[in-house]
């Protein structure tokens, strides 16, 4: 379990990083928190010719408010975002999700943007981005583009970030007024990737009836599965909303697979249970918002 040989680069500025990535192209891999990449290297499941370590780019270690939401830089660690009062105030779902990400020692190193680029459909943060309709900012030498969540996750462990591109930040929309969020998951052990997990956002109108209900599910498809279930819930107060109908609608949408930890049927069942729980809790949060 030692990595194959690679050239190591540690750029001192964003410009230098983009130059290096332009040069390495598809042979280059970005190292940020390393919580997924290093095990892949050690097991020789990945063998990039160049490793571009961005840990020197402290300019990317940012958590900043922007109009309409929160921008998180590529070197902001999970732990920092989890403890950020500004992040909690603007978008509580981030904190709700981050508490479920692995363990504290991993959250001390792992980065939010790194988790998005790794694009594991079992991970929490891609689901958060998908649910909120956020975006990822990709920089390359000579240009920058913002890719919306719906286009960013292209497959299991596959994202829209191309050769020569560096994900420099991600944008998470703020929680709208009279809205609430929740994240529920079932994992085999504390901190494991979830067997199934559901992030939910519920918004209420002036009469405190459900006007928006959306969920995003983990571990039940090649990418996080986002679904608008507003119609299924019914335009009703949370106490009488049809969460079960919403759960059924989501169950019909997802395509879970059987693996060594759970059958597809169990994952579908679990997702239904968690959709109900997450929507109910999110609606409760919205009532108190």
């Amino acid at each position: 379990m030692k990595p194959p040989p690679f050239d190591y680069h540690r750029p001192r500025s964003l410009g230098e990083a983009l130059d290096v990535l332009a040069g390495t192209g598809a042979d280059g891999k970005v190292l940020a928190g390393g919580q997924s990449l290093i095990p892949l290297l050690n097991m020789r499941l990945a063998a990039p010719a160049h490793l571009v370590d961005i840990n020197g780019l402290t300019e990317l270690a940012t958590v900043e408010e922007e109009p309409g939401g929160l921008r998180i830089g590529a070197l902001a660690r999970h732990a920092r975002v989890e403890r950020s009062a500004r992040a909690a105030a603007l978008q509580p779902l981030l904190g709700q999700a981050l508490r479920l990400v692995a363990h504290p020692v991993i959250r001390n190193r792992g980065t939010v943007v790194g988790s998005l680029v790794h694009a594991d459909p079992a991970a929490e943060l891609p689901a958060v981005l998908a649910l909120l309709g956020g975006s990822v900012r990709l920089a390359r030498r000579g240009g920058t583009r913002d890719v919306p969540a719906a286009e960013f996750f292209t497959g299991p462990l596959e994202s829209a970030a191309g050769p020569g591109e560096l994900a420099v930040s991600a944008f998470f929309p703020a929680l709208p007024p009279r809205s609430g969020t929740a994240f529920h998951e079932v994992a085999r052990r504390h901190g494991d990737y979830a067997l199934a997990g559901v992030a939910a956002l519920v918004g209420l109108d002036d009469d405190l009836r459900v006007s928006t209900a959306r969920v995003a599910c983990v571990s039940v498809g090649p990418v996080p599965v986002a679904a608008d279930v507003t119609g299924a819930c019914g335009h009703r107060p949370p106490a009488s909303a049809d969460w079960a109908a919403a759960a059924r609608a989501v169950q019909d949408r997802i395509e879970p697979e059987t693996d060594i930890h759970a059958t597809a049927d169990y994952r579908r069942h679990l997702t239904g249970v968690l959709v109900e729980r997450a929507l109910r809790d999110a609606a409760g949060e919205a009532l108190h918002a």
Binding site: R188, L195, H261, A262, T263, D265, Y266
Partner: peptide, 11 residues
């Protein structure tokens, strides 16, 4: 016995 196993046993 995993939760998935128990789910199957219940069914």
């Amino acid at each position: 016995l995993s939760p998935s196993d128990l789910f199957d046993l219940r069914r």
